[in-house]
Amino acid sequence: MHPAPSVIIFSVFSGMGFGLLAMLGFGFAQAYGIAGFLWWGLGYSLAIAGLLSATFHLANPKNAIKAFSQWRSSWLSREGIAAVATLVILAPMALSDWLNLGWWRGFGCVGAVLALFTVFTTSMIYTQIKAVPRWNHWVTPVMFMAFAITGGAILAGLPVALWLIWTVGAALLAMWWIGDGAFARAGETMGTATGLSAIGEVTVFEQAHTSGNYLLREMIYVVGRKHAAKLRIIAMGLAVALPALILVLIPAPFGFALAAVSHLIGALAARWLFFAQAEHVVGLFYGQR
């Protein structure tokens, strides 16, 4: 799949943002006055920047408002609704923390649960697609949730981040380990795609078109996989190992700030691979993956 920067930035930034909003909403990290404003502002900024980035992926954004309508069947629609609901419901809590009003934390807890649900809906947009076997597994939501909760905990300056970060490492390893065999396990081949396996072995005699098309650019994007092994090491190093080391060696708050930057860059590398390594079964019609 084509690793579009808008979608990578959207899912990483909004994931981390909603993770931080969840930590602030539950009240795991509390600050008042200007510090409270900045903390909540960071959470809102990341979440909103991510959502805005997602709209750059749309070829016809003027109809984006209609995306709130199909929550009955569409995870993408559910995500839009959950994201907006989270930002609205958490607003009183943010106001309360900023101005030290001491309002009831119920709003915060509901909003925090919604924030995590938003990240879950994001992950389900990919998980639901059977045509992309690498994504079509429960490990995908686990990976998204691990990134959001860990990223949120680092940004919130919670010491537990040092332990949470290993869930990201485990989720990435599981994602890669399970994902590498997923296409083969799904069992689709050129023979099943064309239905010609009953006759014999199918190969491409001539392509359907001599130049590129939307399918080749969007779903059969092989360029991004070239440096997969190196990118995996970079992702694991920057998202997990280095931030863990920083959290141990450098005291708060600088440790958390440095760890957050490293974790964010690592998460972007991991998310690039999430798209670039995902193979769509439509490639079989072209004899490619």
Binding site: L58, A59, K62, N63, K66, A131, E218, V282
Partner: peptide, 19 residues
Amino acid sequence: DCMGCGLCAWACPYGAREL
């Protein structure tokens, strides 16, 4: 009504949809 997100083309195993 289409906003051009392309998710339907991702969901189709047969490459039936082109943006």
